[in-house]
Structure formats: C-alpha cells, structure tokens
Design a protein around this nucleic acid. Structure first.
Lengths: 161, 161
DNA sequence: TTGCTTGCAAATGATTTGCACTGCT
DNA sequence: AGCAGTGCAAATCATTTGCAAGCAA
C-alpha cells in the first residue's frame, strides 16, 4: 500500500534502553539479530501489564504477520528473552523472561481470562524458596524455577457461577 | 496397614469405595451416570501418582476410545470430579479434582515432562493463603483457587539441556 | 420407550513449517 | 555474495464434535 521511498518512522525506535541492550545481548549469544519485528514484540510485551495472547500481541503490533510473531516468540523464548506461560487450553500467553523483569506471579480471572501480575512479600518468597529447595532435594531433583497462579473472579466480572 | 497374607477382596473390584460414592454423587448432580468408562477413568487417575496425559490414560485403560476419554474428562471436569492442568503446549494433564484428594502441588521435570505431586508444610500454606487473600482483595477480586508449580530437572534426567 | 452414552470419523483451530523472496552485514 | 529474516500458505496435531447405534432406567 505504501510506496517505497520515504519510510514512515513516526515512532522513534526509542533510544536503546537498558532492556534493549540486555535483549540484544541475549539474542546475539544465539546468533539472532534484534530486528524491527522482534523489537515490536519486545515493546508490546513490555507495554502490557501481564502476559498476553498472540491476538493481543498482534493488536499491539498490527503490521506483524502471525507466523512471524509465533516464530520470533519461539526463537526469543529459546534465547531467554521471552517466556511462554500456558494457563488455558486455548491461547498461550507470552511475557518477557523473568530475568528481564521482576520475579512475579499471575492472578488469572477464571471468567474473562485476563491475567495480571502480582508479587508476594519478600518474606513469603523466602519461606517458599526454602520449602521448595527442601522438596526438590528430597526428590533428588534440582529446582530451576517455580510458578504461582492465583485464580480469581476479577472485579469486572460478575460473580456468576 | 495389613501384613502379607490372603487378600480379603476378590480380584473383581466391585465394592463402592468412598471415592466412588462421592463421584457418583457429583455426577448425579449434573445428571451424569457413573458408567464403566467413567469408572475406568477415575480408577486410572487414582492409580497415577500425579496428573497424567491422555496417552498415559489410554495406556492405563486400553479399551477406552480416545474420543470417549476426552469427552468424559470434559464432562467430569464440569462436574467437579476431574481437574485439567496445563503445563506445556503439547498435552494437557488430568487428575482427580482437588476436593477428592488432598491439597497438593506439582513438581514438573522440564526435561522429561513428568509430573509428581508434593505438599507444602501446613504452616507455609497458611502463610500463602493469607498473602493470597490480601492480594486478591486489593485487586477487588475473589480468590477461587491457586496453583503452585515447581519446575525442576529430575533425578532421572541428565542435567544437560 | 426415553434419552444419556458410546465410538467412529470428520471437523476445528492454535501453532508450526516449507519455500521463495528480502534485506542486513 | 551469503545467510538470517520474513510472509504467505499449507501442514500439524491435540482436542472437539456430528451422527448413528447401544444401553440403562
């Protein structure tokens, strides 16, 4: 639709932020470039206040083809930039890898499926960490991470059911 | 419980166990019958020591057709007998509804995908419950349940990747 | 009978992938 | 040049569903 030539770059590729540098670094270690499509994905994930589905992502980055989105999410997951979380059977949700953000958990509305981040008091986290270490050890396993989901009916949803 | 000796129960397991009664009751409330196929599913889920995939289930109940397994799992989930948990993108895992068992969590091997149940000390659970209630309240939401997954590399899997 | 169940096969739909083309480096 | 990246369309595959036949109340 748009002719070649004058490129429309209304949105400045926001000066390389700290996040961008880390992402660039991680991608390079996997011989991946930080292309505009991947920047769009990272920007969208950062803009969201929780994990989002692919349709959500495409809404935030309308020019991004679906297959490219899926492909790059998979590659970036491999590179430790993106994390995929599966809460329901329909769509997976994507967010920035935890190491690029803060340790957090998810509050999921069982009615509308929306997902919101939350954090636990440091003290509680420490208690949990100790418990997990103990559990894993007794099973002869090594913990790599943990995930805590809080299922709720959110304020926007009628408490039907 | 009992020492070695003569089993007092014939091979044919007919007796309605406590679990069976509860299941029957829940199914009836949803106008569902506790058929042999559904019994086979419940028996398989009880036999497993953690949530299992559909192929696992079919291995434990070889005569059960796939579509019947899926259909009845969905119906029994609706009736509060079965719980579906999704950890990966490939297969969902199924287990008996928590109210029919004990409150527990899952330790998942990232390498081989096996899932094992574990429980947290009651004290830790109480701490968590309080924290969750607080979190949900502040968000204007109502907690319905929570889920804790511990990701590990199990003892049977090489720590490589 | 009535209608819940079943099993087969076909449909569905999120995700993946083959292939030819683009565009960095 | 050379090869990673892209986009379209077709392929995958777990899961769902339509339909005709079976069985329990």
């Amino acid at each position: 639709m748009s002719g070649p030539g004058i490129a429309s770059v209304p949105v400045v590729m926001a000066a390389t932020t700290e996040l961008d540098r880390v992402v660039t670094d991680r991608l390079e270690r996997h011989e991946l470039r930080y292309t505009s499509g991947r920047r769009a994905i990272v920007a969208a994930l950062r803009a969201a206040d929780g994990p989002i589905t692919l349709p959500d992502l495409l809404d935030l980055a309308p020019t991004l083809p679906q297959s490219s989105a899926y492909r790059n999410l998979a590659l970036m997951e491999e590179a430790g930039v993106v994390r995929r979380v599966v809460h329901r059977a329909d769509y997976a949700h994507f967010e920035l890898a935890e190491e690029l953000t803060e340790h957090h958990h998810h509050m999921i509305c069982e009615s509308c499926g929306s997902v919101q981040d939350f954090t636990l008091p440091a003290k509680v986290e420490r208690t949990l960490d100790a418990a997990f270490r103990e559990i894993a050890e007794q099973a002869g396993a090594t913990e790599t991470s943990h995930l805590i989901d809080l299922f709720v009916v959110c304020g926007d949803c009628p408490a039907d059911r």
